[in-house]
Amino acid sequence: MQPILEIKNLQAGVEGRHILKGISLTIQPGEIHAVMGPNGSGKSTLAAVLAGREGYDIVSGEVRYLGQDLLELDPEERARAGLFLAFQYPVEIPGVNSTYFLKAALNEIRKHRGLPEMDAIEFLGFVKDKIKLLELNEDLLKRPVNVGFSGGEKKRNEIFQMAVLEPRLAVLDETDSGLDIDALRVVSNGVNKLRSPQNAALVITHYQRLLNYIVPDFVHVLMDGRIVRSGGKELALELEERGYDWIAREQRLAA
């Protein structure tokens, strides 16, 4: 079976700082991988590099997505190929209507998949259940993108967009940060509903809490730009109990 994502010895940085120092990770269809790590370990850089954010320098290594060279693609090409980034800080875009924006995005992706474009009425029918799934108010679709949304609404809106765009690989960048327990439940429920044997997700988080709801198949610990330990879901619990210092100490001993 072709892996969805293969990262091989990826080294990358931003503004002259060397942040990712050799990451390798393979994600197969149907799998959920969690990347955990303390602040500054390179979690968000990994998400940014995968989504194609400008300003990041790839020093070495490669990333293959469904067999193609991901790093060669523009951000919009990655999205059309089914990669989705749920932003840690969703951007407010005044003046751009949510429906208009999401319909345009969906139709770009549908065009890429060889499907006919949806008109406004079809689109509204298509998104109705997905809005309910994320327990969002339908009025949200009439508002400008993320403008005036609460922190929780913004995060739920990210997962709502994910539900609409139906990605092959979802990268969730600290989707749990700033969420209260109810919102966490709603967001996780949304992500779980979208699980399928064809799709995969990379869940980036600082805390184990989210992984009580989105149960990962694999957990990777990222420290100082390297994956220093990988394991099953129980690794997350161990981290929760013992903290990141425990692994850091072991790392130093090993060195």
């Binding site: 523009d74 999205a79 980034l85 875009i93 770009e108 992706i109």
Partner: peptide, 15 residues
């Protein structure tokens, strides 16, 4: 705003 441009592109909308 480059953040806004990136947000739209990350959803599949051309630059």
């Amino acid at each position: 705003n480059p953040e806004s441009v990136f947000y739209l592109r990350a959803r599949g909308i051309p630059l």
